[in-house]
Amino acid sequence: MFRELGQMLVLFGATLRALPGFLRRRRSIGEQIFEIGNASLLMACMLSFFIGGVLVLQAGSVLVERGLGSQLGGLVGISLCKELAPVMMAILIAGRVGSAMAAELGSMQVYQEVDALRTLNIEPIDYLVLPRIVAITIALPALVVFSNLVGWLGGAAVASFNSDIGIPTATFFSNLREVVDTWDIAHGLIKAFVFAMAVGTVCCHQGLQTRGGPRGVGRSVTKAVTNSIVLVLLLDYVLTRLLQPFDA
């Protein structure tokens, strides 16, 4: 495990060193961002809407019983933007995009495409890894912003239409505006940014480490997704702890 962690850090360091040349890869980065959006936007939308809705269902009746129904907007707003949206989107991206990245790079490794790049004096990290990590690092925070908005809408819709809760949309958003400030949004985006780099690095590393034909590709994909999810949840705790002093 420590060996793999070390290899991932080396890969991440090499990607950072290649970063100054990312403008050269803008076309490839654009294609990757399009792929990520295409693969995950609809699912992100559905996931976020229902997470907002479930949050309201779970917390709404308890708060209303205690006469705190008007605080529902703030609760949903904070939960989504600081915690649920970044974590859920990172897990979604690991499953939908990270797995595809690991499979693609794994196949390229198995079928000697990566070796062929090296013999052409083309650095695979620069050509293959950099565009993927940059794309995921741009796309995940953007998805989190989107997820926040859709999740809040989902929460507001359930709060308004559920007869046991019955909080008007205006009250919901008024409280949300009162409670959620720019830092809370930034808090979630910082997490998303770090999660994206972690998921991208883990999945590219697993892809490039693939050995042994189609079975090896399958193993790499499974490892890429599970390792990414574990790392996201670990990092979530660490980042929450680190960012806490900056909370108002």
């Binding site: 390229m108 079928y111 000697q112 495409e113 070796d115 062929a116 790049l117 013999t119 052409l120």
Partner: peptide
Amino acid sequence: AMVFQSGGLL
């Protein structure tokens, strides 16, 4: 240069 058994084409 090297020509791979599988071709190694992208």
